[in-house]
Design a protein around this nucleic acid. Structure first.
Lengths: 221, 221
DNA sequence: AGTTTTACTTATCAATCAGTAAGTTTGCAA
DNA sequence: TTGCAAACTTACTGATTGATAAGTAAAACT
């Protein structure tokens, strides 16, 4: 069979899953090949080395997140909707067999990675942190949230907590993750000015004009 | 040579270092053997399987931490001294070639571990979290610190942030870790009552009577 | 002094690892 | 219809993996 095969992207899907499940050195080309029903040489045809495969996963994750950023930006202006959508990425990881965040998995084995994979990991982390920082800054400027220090610090705190609690949830209980997210969230809700409405409006979020409100787009980043 | 050899504990030292450096599946018996100047069969003599070795590392870490708890309890009553001593554990990891916390390393590869190692990891995490929770509860009760929610939630937040930021520091910059710890710390300092002294006394911490104030005992947990 | 135990080494094992070279099938274009 | 390239398979490689059996030297015990 030739031309127009989706094997290449299915390899990436499986490798990404395995990375989040067992860690980078916890799976091999044989794992992917057998799950996919091909021979391991087929994997090497598409991704000559395992480092190439890793870089491809990371590049795709970065592009996917950038598309996610564009989509969320087009959909809403509301700070809490954006932040909850970000939390939902990690929540969907947990719900999907207790996967952890890919960046965290790779950072844990950082010194066993190739230079190229280290560079690609850095690039991914930078993009994630950049979005969080910008979102937090805008949120505080318009009074939607409160936190101490500068937005970059708070972004680091949130990112690390999410990454860490997905991991701890494995050794403990998934409920601990949700508890931690709620806790983190609560700390950022601005104190209700007496006589005004709820601190975080559950309804009546400001939607962008013309933005479709389709559901279920949230997960799978 | 026979009897009274320190090979067994030196194996544990090296394995622990390698775990924190390259992850559980990122090193082999050969790595330990060559660094130690013995043959890999010598490692198998002391730890028949790699799972045995892993459980031994985790058990030692747990015992070591329990001894650390006793020592800190004997030394000081001050909440911030205790918490800073806890932070110092992670800070010394980072300073030691950018190591990450062992529990985090194992959680990242959790599904590639043996049942025994998973159990031992759970046990270690439980002890860490237990100490943090108890310390936070006592600290808040006496007004030494502030935080929202219950102590267990805050303990989870702190633990996850420390674990996560050690990992992120690798893909980014070590300074990010210290920044995050300062940020985390700042959030818990009680607001200064006007007219009273500093929120957190830098000197004049209450020391336990008869507790030796020897320095440098802090790292190496 | 003799025996046992400890702490290894030597040598090897099958399994698995990432990776490659050479062939085979298939769809598409000229 | 032939030519060609894409997408594989077949069949390997050498290195490394965790692990084992058998042998050995020295210390410790009797």
């Amino acid at each position: 069979m030739a031309r127009r095969s989706d094997t290449k992207s299915r390899i990436l899907d499986l490798a990404e899953q395995l990375l989040q499940d067992r860690g980078w050195n916890g799976f091999s080309y044989q794992h992917i090949a057998s799950k996919l029903g091909v021979k391991n040489a087929a994997i090497h045809y598409h991704y000559p080395t395992k480092s190439d495969l890793g870089v491809a996963i990371l590049d795709r994750l970065r592009r996917r997140f950038q598309r996610w950023c564009d989509a969320i930006e087009a959909e809403t202006d509301d700070f809490w909707e954006k932040l909850d959508a970000f939390f939902a990425i990690y929540q969907s990881y947990l719900a999907d067999q207790g996967k952890i965040c890919p960046a965290g998995a790779l950072e844990a084995e950082f010194n066993a990675l190739s230079d190229e994979m280290r560079r690609a990991t850095r690039a991914l982390v930078t993009v994630f942190h950049g979005w969080l920082t910008a979102t937090l800054e805008a949120g505080r400027d318009r009074g939607a949230c409160v936190f101490q220090g500068d937005p970059a610090e708070q972004a680091m705190l949130i990112g690390c907590t999410l990454q860490g609690s997905l991991q701890v949830a494995r050794a403990w209980s998934p409920e601990r993750f949700h508890e931690t997210v709620r806790h983190l969230r609560k700390q950022m809700v601005p104190p209700t000015p007496p006589g005004k409405g709820a601190a975080r409006p559950a309804g009546g979020r400001r939607r962008k004009a013309g933005a479709s409100s389709k559901q279920g787009r949230r997960s799978g980043v």
